[in-house]
Structures are given as C-alpha cells and as structure tokens.
Nucleic acid binder design. Structure first.
Lengths: 186, 186
DNA sequence: TATTTATTAGATTGATTAGTCAATTTATTA
DNA sequence: TAATAAATTGACTAATCAATCTAATAAATA
C-alpha cells in the first residue's frame, strides 16, 4: 500500500515548511498522515532518510515540469525564457515545495546527501547554455556560475512575487525576465 | 562581565551554522562558550531570544561594513559597485555570518521577529536607488524588487565563490558585477 | 565594614524526542 | 486452504532537551 508512503511525504512537506525539521516530530507527521509511528519507520529508516526522500521527490517534480514542452528548434532567448517562466510558475504555484527546497538547501544538518546531488540542472539547460555560448549570445561565463545566477534570479523573483502577489502578471514577468536576460546576454 | 555574553553569541554562531538551531542544545552552547547553562539563561531569557539577538547583531555588523566609506558624490554605477563589492567581500570574509543569515532568513520557526525586520536595507542603498531612477540610469523597477534582485545576486555570487574559491579575484568580481549591472541598468 | 545587588554555577525537572518491538492484521503465494 | 511474508499498530524506552532553582560568589554601595 504505497499510498501511505505518499501520505507521509505529503504530511512531512507541510509540517517541515510550517515548523521546520526539528520543530516537527515524527509522531506529529504520523498523526497528520493518519498512520502509526511504526509505519513511518517502516517506510523510512530514519527521520533524516525521510527528509532526503522528500527533497528528491520534490526536486524531481519541479524538474519534470521545467523540462516539459522544451523545443530545441526555437532560438536561445525564447528557450531560456520558457525555462525561466516555467521555473517561476512552478515555484509560485507550489509555494510549499519552493519553500521546502529553500530551507533544505541551506539546512546545515542534512549532510548525508552529497552537496553535488543538490545541484539542480537539466539537459535542456545544459543544451541552451552551450548553444548560447557557441553563438556568442550569452556572456562567457562558466556553466556553474550561469546556474547559480539562474537559480538566484528565480529565487529572488519568486520571493518578490510572494510578497507582492498583485504584481504577478504577464507584463511584469516579461519585464523581470528582460532584466535577467540583459544581465546574462552579450 | 559582558564578555561572557559575547562568548555565548560567538559559540552560538558556530554551532548554529554547523548543526542548525534545533541540532544545537543550550547545554552545548554553554559548554563551547565556557559558561554554565544558568549563565546562558541569565543573559538570554529563552533560546529563541538568543537566536534573535544573534541575528540582529550579525546583520548589524554586516550593514556597518557595507555603509562604510560611502561617498554620495561619486556616480551611480560606482556607488552601486562599491555597495555590491563590500557586500560580497563581507560575506566571503565572514562565511559563518553569511550562512547564519541565510539559514535564519529561511527558517520557519523564528516567527517572533517580524518579517519586516528581516529586510536588509541601508540609507546608502535607498539614496543610490533614488538617484539611479531619477537620472534614468537604472530600470524603472520598484525599490522592493531592486532590493530582492540585489540580495539574490549577492547570495548566488557568494555561493558560487564558496564552491570555486580559486575564481575569487578582482577580474572575476568585475565581470560578475558587470553582469549584475547590465541587468539593472537601462 | 555591613548590606545589597548582580553574576555564575551546575544539579535537577518535567516534557519531548527518535526510534524499537512484540503483537496483530492484511496480502501473497504454494 | 494453509503457510508465509509484508504491512500496520501503538505502547514503550532511553536519551535529550529547554528551562528552573537553590546556592555560592563577586561587585557595588552605604
């Protein structure tokens, strides 16, 4: 009955975002999931393993959405804009998942998962980056920095829209993307 | 003997960054500070108060350094570059403080301190922003978004240099600032 | 000097925690 | 159907936690 595993993950996401990792007891997670504590530890050996599993599944759901509808025949700016828009939209539509990724990323006590695994990149992004460099349309920066710049921009953009939801419309999104593009383009 | 208070704050900073808020017990803080637990609770009524005090003192030390040597007679780009450089340098020179500000900012269980208080801005930044808008040198965006864009850029820049310390030199800093400037300037 | 006040100590407390375990139910297979 | 395996339960435990309390000491004041 894998549905219980999913219910545990769902309950965890909401509790971790509201109360933090250590502020959320395994007993509370089990209660919210409608499950006994023993069941929780049947599916996840430790609390830490649960947190890591939740991170991986959350990241996966985000990447799946971002990779969707990618068309490598379009030009570089359009491809990048689509990746950027899909990222912003995923994060604003899934505030809990977005917040969880943030707190996980900066959380000091999740050491078991290698930091490498945390880096979020997709084939589409690598392809767009390489083409952008080849055609001299984006600045000559390393892929690693381009990624940090991209996610840093997504984070601050989404954080801004979270504080000012009335600004979230196509026109503002276009403006903010132009700001990002003006930075990274040659 | 206010030195004990400072020792408690110092020990807290290191432990919180290494082990997280809940991963760090008050007993451990007292031990690392060379102080009894009773002393800790003499200076800080609760653990939460200690965390908030540490955040305020950490933020203050950062803002002091950023505001230093500000010269409003220089032109906008130069002023902004100085603010940007001083921010990046403070964060790379004080990785513990930088990391603490990050984990505090995204921490869900610190609710007592209003979110407004968290926003980091200085007189210099407001002045530079206003002049930039007036002279049409920076794009017509709100101050709030400009701030989010600024700190998002600092964060991704410092995170990048943390992973690639060999890249931390004046030339790269100039390049990365140009990327930031190209985004925000008209 | 005598008295009060601030500081420091650490053992103690009651609550909470992650994780266990033996017992029971449900699903699978032979 | 019978036997085995997997899933589920929740009471339980040993450890750990933030915070308290009493007592002792140092500093300030009169």
């Amino acid at each position: 009955m894998k549905e219980k595993e999913q219910k545990i993950l769902d309950a965890s996401l909401n509790l971790f975002v509201d109360k933090g990792f250590h502020g959320t007891s395994t007993a509370k997670i089990a209660e919210n999931a409608g499950v006994a504590t023993g069941t929780l530890f049947h599916y996840f050996k430790t609390k830490e393993e649960l947190i890591n599993c939740l991170y991986l599944s959350t990241k996966e759901s985000m990447l799946n959405e971002i990779n969707d509808n990618y068309d490598n025949k379009k030009d570089i700016k359009e491809n990048l804009k689509n990746l950027w828009l899909k990222s912003v939209k995923f994060c604003t539509k899934n505030p809990q998942k977005f917040q969880f990724i943030l707190i996980f990323q900066y959380s000091p006590y999740i050491t078991s998962l290698t930091k490498k695994q945390i880096e979020t990149q997709t084939e589409c992004m690598i392809e767009t980056y390489i083409k952008g460099i080849e055609k001299h349309e984006i600045k000559e920066i390393s892929f690693e920095f381009a990624m940090d710049y991209f996610w840093g921009n997504i984070t601050s953009t989404v954080n801004y829209f979270r504080k000012h939801p009335e600004e979230l419309n196509e026109k503002t999104l276009d403006q903010v993307f132009e700001l990002f593009w003006d930075g990274i383009s040659t």
